[in-house]
Amino acid sequence: MNKQVLFILGGGGKEDYAADAQLVASLQEALGEAYVVHYPFLPSEKTPDFGRKKQISKQISLIRGELILVGHSLGASMLLKYLSETRIRKKIAGIFLISTPFWSGEQDWKQGFILHKDFADKLPKKVPLFLYHSKDDKEVPIDHLEQYAKCLPMATLRTISKGGHQFNNDLSVVAKDIESL
């Protein structure tokens, strides 16, 4: 039976979906036939979290068996929010987060994205957690990874020297870590 990967997109529009589709294609190609990468379109709803927690829950419920979670940008941060605020009954083999924003500030529009102070304590236990960030990411600066490093000492951090926010559409480094599980 194929291993199941759920990829949560960054952003929420059709342009974001199309951009991340190249990441998904790269990941699927690198992983090969032993894996199935699910890539649902998650439209932005008019809720503080864009409806992501509810949408992620639905997508997780549709997948049978053990699950590998991958998120990019907003999708990565919303996976963290979901996993730290929701009790998961499915077995998660690993969590892989790419170009993850560390939300902070008092602006109203950010409040649905900001993690609770104790979020790290609420994440699933004994599940490998990987964070990836490119040093030349102009959308989410590298210091966001440094913030996560302080909160998530158990995580494996991978810094990529060049690739920008979209990792030059090459997720082979993520695929290698997924295959190592």
Rank of each mutant, 00 (worst) to 15 (best):
S73W: 01
S73F: 02
L74S: 04
G75M: 05
G75H: 07
A76C: 10
A76Q: 05
A76T: 05
S77Q: 01
M78E: 06
M78R: 03
M78S: 09
M78G: 06
L79Q: 02
L79S: 06
L79V: 02
L79Y: 07
L79T: 04
L80E: 07
L80F: 06
L80H: 08
Y82G: 03
Y82I: 04
L83N: 06
L83R: 08
S84R: 07
S84N: 05
S84Y: 05
S84W: 05
S84P: 09
S84H: 05
S84C: 05
E85S: 15
T86V: 14
R87M: 13
R87V: 14
R87Y: 13
R87W: 11
R87E: 15
I88F: 08
I88V: 15
R89D: 15
K90I: 09
K90M: 09
K91M: 12
K91S: 14
I92W: 04
A93K: 15
G94L: 07
I95P: 06
I95C: 08
I95V: 11
I95F: 09
I95S: 06
F96R: 04
F96I: 03
L97G: 02
L97E: 00
L97K: 01
I98E: 01
I98A: 00
T100L: 01
T100W: 01
P101M: 00
P101G: 00
W103M: 11
W103C: 08
W103S: 10
W103Q: 09
S104G: 09
S104H: 12
S104K: 14
S104D: 11
G105C: 02
G105V: 01
G105M: 02
E106T: 14
E106H: 12
E106Y: 11
E106F: 11
Q107R: 14
Q107C: 08
Q107N: 12
Q107A: 15
Q107H: 12
D108N: 14
D108G: 12
W109D: 12
K110F: 12
K110W: 09
K110C: 10
Q111G: 02
Q111E: 07
Q111W: 09
G112T: 07
F113T: 05
F113P: 11
F113R: 08
I114W: 02
I114A: 06
I114M: 05
L115P: 11
L115S: 08
H116S: 14
H116Y: 11
H116L: 12
K117Q: 15
K117C: 11
K117A: 15
K117I: 13
D118I: 07
D118S: 11
F119R: 02
F119N: 04
A120H: 03
A120M: 05
A120G: 02
D121N: 15
D121I: 12
D121M: 15
D121C: 14
K122M: 09
K122G: 04
L123A: 04
L123P: 01
P124G: 03
P124K: 04
K125G: 08
K125R: 13
K126Q: 15
K126S: 14
V127L: 02
V127G: 01
P128M: 03
P128Y: 04
P128W: 06
P128A: 06
P128E: 04
P128F: 04
L129F: 08
L129K: 09
L129I: 13
F130C: 11
F130V: 09
F130I: 03
L131E: 02
L131C: 08
L131M: 14
L131T: 03
Y132H: 01
Y132K: 00
Y132G: 00
S134A: 09
S134E: 01
S134C: 10
S134F: 00
S134P: 00
K135P: 06
K135A: 10
D136I: 00
